[in-house]
């Protein structure tokens, strides 16, 4: 479904991604794990079109993405939950959700989908008239996920959804990730919390200083000695 092929991304003289290749099949949860600065977010940003690869191709259902501007990428069915949630702080919860549906042509159904998001996250409904900047971190994360769902994506790119959240909330977020996947959305999940990510994922890739060093079934990665040592703290 999504194929990243030999992609290089340079920020000036810094090589953020070096020859990265990965693949996400329809219906999967794929985890991308690695330390801070390994290039996980850059991978997602290049899929979404926010950074342009210096080399390589990104294919989604057979069409090339690497030259598409971000809004075209969204229209093709790829949405992103950005790192640090990035809700629009001065817009209300409701307006944030409406922004998520910005590309949709079927305006009439948007209200129903907002209600579905509210059914999933009742806290958001209670606060729908509140500016998103006044929500707690966990609520903002739920809003960011709800907002990404509003475009009815085929694949959702999630960048560190558990970052900065209390342990109980982390469990909840991972349950939500599983739920979204079960209702038919493919997920590419970037996480520093490797243990949790590998527990929900089908397959995983490990990034180190911009390169894919290990990949395989999530269960195998969780047992891999090098992965355990570096990322699982065993």
């Amino acid at each position: 479904m999504l194929v990243v092929e030999n992609v290089d991304v340079n920020y000036g003289a810094i090589r953020a991604l070096v020859d990265v290749s990965l693949e996400v099949h329809e219906g999967e949860i794929v985890a991308l794990i690695g330390a801070n600065g390994a290039g996980k977010s850059t991978t997602l940003r290049s899929i979404s079109g926010l950074v342009k690869p210096n080399k390589g191709r990104i294919l989604f259902e057979g069409s090339e993405l690497q030259k598409c501007p971000p809004h075209k990428v969204v229209e093709m069915g790829i949405s992103q939950v950005p790192e640090g949630r990035r809700v629009f702080p001065l817009m209300t919860v409701l307006e944030n959700l409406e922004m998520g549906a910005f590309t949709r042509k079927d305006r009439a159904n948007i209200k129903d989908d907002i209600d579905k998001v509210f059914a999933k996250f009742p806290r958001l409904e209670e606060r729908k008239k509140q500016p998103a900047g006044t929500l707690s971190g966990g609520e903002q994360q739920m809003l960011a996920i709800g907002r990404a769902l509003m475009s009815k994506p085929k694949i959702m790119l999630m960048d560190e959804p558990s970052m900065g959240l209390a342990p109980m909330l982390v469990q909840e977020i991972f349950n939500i990730v599983k739920e979204i996947n079960q209702s038919g959305t493919t997920i590419l999940l970037v996480e520093q919390n490797a243990r949790m990510a590998l527990a929900v994922a089908n397959r995983g890739y490990v990034l180190e200083t911009g390169q894919v060093v290990i990949s395989g079934a999530a269960a195998d990665l969780a047992k891999n000695e090098a992965v355990q040592k570096a990322y699982l703290g065993v």
Partner: peptide, 20 residues
Amino acid sequence: KAMRATSQDYDTAALMGVNV
């Protein structure tokens, strides 16, 4: 609304499908 979103967070507005 897209204008307000873009002024609050340029990149994220683009991620919503706004042609910035």
